[in-house]
Design a protein around this nucleic acid. Structure first.
Ligand code: SF4
Ligand code: SF4
Lengths: 148, 148
DNA sequence: AATATTAAAGATAATTTTATCCTTAATTTT
DNA sequence: AAAATTAAGGATAAAATTATCTTTAATATT
């Protein structure tokens, strides 16, 4: 559904929400291992999630530094991750790729897609980061036992 | 949601279903114009939709040749277009990009995504090409008046 | 059979996405 | 203050996607 970048971004954000607090930060290394992503690539994504415009996650350099997520951001919808990655069009745009999508100017799949899109959007806009992080289900390809 | 190729493929297939019959075929030129796609690119996509493995649409070369769709294929689900373009993973795979997705090995968004994915899949697998083609809603970016 | 028309096929180019690497800056610990 | 640790930033590379072009093959019309 999403780009690889956004998949990693979602997994990384959930991982950070689970494994960090005010005084326990997580390193790029442990995030990369925790979600099964290439370290240099996830580093770039973390950068994007924590830059001036986005600030979905926070970071501090230096020893015992790393990434964490503030209480304020924890209660935001996971949608902010998708937005920060620039992938929100995937769930917002027309299935047929037409611009100016609306009930007034419907594409040929409008009627059948409309409600599914609404559900998709509300899934990402109504669920908070903390809510998703709570589940403890897996975030990494090979890990099949994180739930038990 | 889908790749540009698949968006064009869906629009082209619906366009052909609307504008062709056993004796009226449509040319690449008129398809490109009818859906607002670059002609050389849509030519490649039509090729892929009509090749030996896929055969979603059919074609004949020569004067008064062009593309058409058989009665048999008209009654197939639009899912076959997505499959032919190799984009079915987009609606089948895990939102978080994890392999071996199942209730037994759920990812951290499984619970909230499961039913939406089911709806997405049934939308593409239960609706036939003819059913979608019937709507007469727009297939082209600039055309805002095809419904009236 | 010759000609005109149309798609098929394959080569190529541009762009975007994905991934990696190396240097710099910030922070903490000693 | 010096050393160690960690992320930030920027440059580069590889791969996939999107787009274009040219030649060839097939078919119908004359
Ligand atoms: S399907 Fe309808 S609602 Fe969905 S995008 Fe196309 S026009 Fe818009
Ligand atoms: S969300 Fe659940 S069902 Fe959907 S993909 Fe991830 S594991 Fe599979």
């Amino acid at each position: 559904m999403f780009s690889k970048s956004t998949e990693y971004a979602l997994r990384a954000t959930i991982f950070i929400a689970r494994n960090s607090s005010a005084d326990t930060k997580v390193s790029i290394q442990s995030i990369a291992e925790g979600i099964g992503a290439p370290k240099p690539f996830i580093a770039k994504i973390l950068q994007q999630l924590s830059n001036k415009q986005n600030q979905v996650i926070s970071s501090t350099p230096g020893p015992s530094g790393g990434f964490f997520i503030t209480k304020e951001k924890r209660s935001k919808p996971i949608y902010i991750v998708i937005e920060a990655m620039g992938d929100s069009t995937i769930i917002e745009n027309c299935v047929l790729g037409l611009p100016n999508c609306s009930d007034a100017a419907p594409c040929s799949m409008h009627k059948v897609y409309k409600n599914i899109r609404k559900d998709l959007l509300s899934m990402f806009k109504d669920r908070t980061i903390d809510e998703i992080a709570k589940s403890k289900d897996r975030l990494i390809p090979t890990d099949f036992s994180c739930k038990e």
